[in-house]
Design a binder for these strands. Structure first.
Length: 512
RNA sequence: GCCCCCAUCGUCUAGCGGCCUAGGACUCUGCCCUUUCACGGCAGCAACACGGAUUCGAAUUCCGUUGGGGGUACCA
C-alpha cells in the first residue's frame, strides 16, 4: 500500500504538472529480484490505471529501463568517477573496518573510517597484487549537505556525519546507491517522490549527484520529496507480509481502483477541509507535493472500505454490473494468480461464500459467457445491491441465493434465529404461498406482489410488516440480509418462489 | 554512539498568530426513515504530548523534554 501511495503521488504530480511519469525497475540485487515480482508490479499498476509515459514494457528515449540491463552504462560512469577522484578503490573488508574501530576505541556502531581514502598508487598495486578485489567508495565532501525537501522543507546533514559509502561491490556489482542517482541523471528525472526511509540516504545521493553534475553526466539536481510511511497495526510500517498491504487481496475482496486510490491519497494529503471522496481527475487537478503531510498515517481498513462504498455507488449502473461479474462466484482468478508469489501472499484464503458455486469464472469481462439465468439475475439484481454493498465481493452474498438451485438453498443461522422470534412464521408463509399460487407469472412483478401480499398479511391479517415479511425473506433467500423482498421474488419468478416457500414450510428443522 | 525525520479526537485530517468554547470524515452510540440490510437524515462521545520563550494574544513561531520512526550495510 505504501508503494502504491508513493506511485500514485508521483503519477498524480506528473499528470498535474504535465510532465512524464517514468517507470524504472531497480533490480540490481540478484538475490532478491525475481521475474514474478516484476510481473506483479506491472499487473498492479495496470489494474490501478497508473499508466506511465516511458519505462519498462513500453520503452522510451532512455531505454532500457531495467537496471539489470544497464550494467555497461554504470561501468562507464564508475570509471569516470574513479578517474576524477570522486570515488576511490577501497580494500577494507567490513571485518577490518570494525577491528580498526574497536582498536581505536570508537563505538562499534561507527561506520567506515576512511582508511583507503588516500592510498598511494603503490599501495593500491600491492593490494591488487595480493589478489584483493576493491569495492569502490564515494568520497564524501567535508561540508554540510542541505536540500529542500518537497514535503519537509530544508533538511541539513552535518558535515562528517556520513562515511564514504560503497557504490560498487568488490565483485563488480553496482549498488542502488550508485545506480539510482545515475539513472535519475541520465533519464533527466527532475522530481522524485519516495518513501521517508530514503531520507537519510539522500545526503549520500546528493553528494554523488554533485559529482555527476561536475562530470557533466547530470544536468540538474532533482527535487526530492519524502513521503511519510503508511503504518499497520501496532505502530509499525505496513510490511509486505501484512494482508492489508496486499493489493491483490484487496482486489479479491472487491475494492475497486477508484476507491483504493482515493483512500490512499487521503493518507497524508487532503483535497479540501470538508471533503474526502474524489476522483483521480480531481486528485490530478489539485495535487502538489508541497501539501503532503510529513507525519506517518495508519492504514484504516474500515475507512478504506467506506470510501470504496462511495465509489461503488457512484459507478454507472452498467459499469457496476460488469464489474460484479467476476465476483459472482467468489473467484476472480487471472493468469497472474497462478504465480507462486501471489499464492504465497494469499495464503490466508478469503472465506468462501455459503452458496454452492457451479462454475468458476476466469476473468473480469465474461458477462457474455454467463447463462441466460445468470445474466437475468445480474441485470435485475445489480441495481438492487449497488447501494447495499461496500465491496464487490459482497455481491455474491447478496445475489447468491438467486443463482443457487432451490434444493441447494441453505438457511443461515442468524436468519433462522430471526424467524424463530416470530410466532406463526410457518402460517405466514403458508398464507403467502396460497396467495402466490393464484398469481399468474406475467403478473409476478414486484409492485403487484407488494400490493397483494401487503393487502393479505398486513391489512387483512393485521400483522406488522416485520412479522409478515421476515419469514418470507428467509424462505426465499435463506438470509437475514438480502436485496428487497418483492424484487427478489420477481427475479426468482413464480415457480421458484413457490418451490422455496414449500421447502420452507416442509423443512423439519424449522420448528416454529 | 552519531545523523536525520515526525508529534491535533481511537483512526485519517482541517487549521498556516486572533474567525478555535478546535471544523470535517471513518469508527462507535442513540434516534428518525424503513419488509431485512443498506442508503439518507438528525444527535452524541472524542484531540492540540509536556515544559519554557516570543507576543496584547499561540494548536499555529522559537528552544528544550518526552515519545515514536528511519539511517549509520559490499539491501533497496
Amino acid at each position: 500500500m505504501g508503494l502504491i501511495r508513493t506511485c500514485l503521488f508521483n503519477w498524480a504530480y506528473a499528470r498535474h504538472a504535465g510532465g512524464s511519469f517514468v517507470f524504472r525497475i531497480e533490480d540490481t540485487d540478484q538475490e532478491r529480484d525475481s521475474e514474478d515480482s516484476y510481473k506483479m508490479i506491472v499487473q498492479a499498476l495496470k489494474w490501478l490505471g497508473l499508466d506511465w509515459d516511458e519505462g519498462a514494457e513500453i520503452g522510451g528515449p532512455h531505454a532500457p529501463y531495467r537496471q539489470s540491463q544497464r550494467l555497461d552504462i554504470y561501468k562507464t560512469v564508475v570509471e569516470k568517477l574513479l578517474e576524477s577522484g570522486f570515488a576511490y578503490k577501497s580494500f577494507s573488508t567490513p571485518e577490518e573496518i570494525q577491528a580498526r574501530n574497536e582498536a581505536a576505541g570508537r563505538p562499534k556502531q561507527m561506520g567506515y573510517d576512511g582508511f583507503d581514502r588516500n592510498l598511494t598508487p603503490a599501495q593500491i598495486e600491492e593490494f591488487e597484487a595480493s589478489g584483493r578485489k576493491p569495492s569502490i567508495r564515494l568520497r564524501m565532501p567535508n561540508d554540510d549537505i542541505t536540500f529542500t525537501d518537497l514535503v519537509r522543507g530544508a533538511v541539513t546533514f552535518k558535515a562528517g556525519s556520513i562515511p564514504d559509502f560503497v557504490v560498487v561491490r568488490a565483485n563488480g556489482q553496482p549498488l542502488y546507491t550508485l545506480v539510482n542517482p545515475v539513472d535519475d541523471a541520465l533519464m533527466e528525472i527532475n522530481y522524485i517522490l519516495r518513501g521517508e526511509d530514503l531520507l537519510s540516504s539522500t545526503s549520500r545521493q546528493i553528494a554523488l549527484y554533485n559529482a555527476l553534475l561536475e562530470l557533466g553526466i547530470a544536468k540538474t539536481m532533482p527535487k526530492f520529496g519524502h513521503l511519510p510511511y503508511v503504518m499497520g497495526e501496532g505502530n509499525k510500517k505496513l510490511s509486505k507480509r501484512d494482508p492489508e498491504s496486499n493489493l491483490f487481496l484487496h482486489r479479491e475482496n472487491g475494492m475497486i481502483p477508484e476507491g483504493l486510490l482515493n483512500y490512499l491519497a487521503l493518507l497524508g494529503w487532503s483535497i479540501a477541509p470538508d471533503r474526502d471522496v474524489f476522483t483521480v481527475d480531481e486528485l490530478i487537478k489539485e495535487f502538489e507535493p508541497g501539501s503532503v503531510l510529513a507525519n506517518p498515517a495508519k492504514f484504516d481498513a474500515k475507512k478504506c472500505t467506506a470510501i470504496n462504498a462511495e465509489h461503488i455507488r457512484r459507478l454507472d449502473a452498467d459499469d457496476f454490473k460488469q464489474r460484479v461479474v467476476p465476483y459472482l462466484y467468489g473467484n476472480i482468478s487471472e493468469p497472474l494468480l497462478e504465480l507462486d508469489l501471489i499464492k504465497q501472499l494469499q495464503s490466508s484464503e478469503p472465506e468462501m461464500p455459503h452458496l454452492t458455486a457451479h462454475k468458476p469464472l476466469t476473468s473480469s469481462d465474461e458477462y457474455d459467457e454467463l447463462t441466460d439465468h445468470e445474466r437475468r439475475v445480474l441485470d435485475l439484481g445489480a441495481p438492487l445491491i449497488q447501494e447495499r454493498i461496500r465491496l464487490l465481493g459482497q455481491a455474491r452474498e447478496m445475489l447468491g441465493f438467486l443463482l443457487v438451485d432451490s434444493d441447494a438453498l441453505e438457511y443461515e443461522d442468524d436468519a433462522l434465529d430471526q424467524v424463530k422470534k416470530i410466532s406463526g412464521a410457518r402460517e405466514v408463509v403458508q398464507k403467502a404461498l396460497e396467495l402466490l399460487e393464484t398469481v399468474q407469472q406475467d403478473a409476478f412483478t414486484a409492485a403487484n406482489l407488494h400490493d397483494k401480499l401487503n393487502q393479505l398479511l398486513v391489512v387483512e391479517c393485521g400483522l406488522k410488516p416485520r412479522v409478515a415479511f421476515t419469514p418470507l425473506r428467509v424462505a426465499i433467500s435463506g438470509r437475514r440480509v438480502s436485496p428487497p423482498l418483492f424484487e427478489s421474488m420477481e427475479i426468482l419468478r413464480k415457480l421458484q418462489v413457490v418451490v422455496r416457500l414449500k421447502k420452507f414450510i416442509s423443512t423439519p428443522s424449522l420448528i416454529i
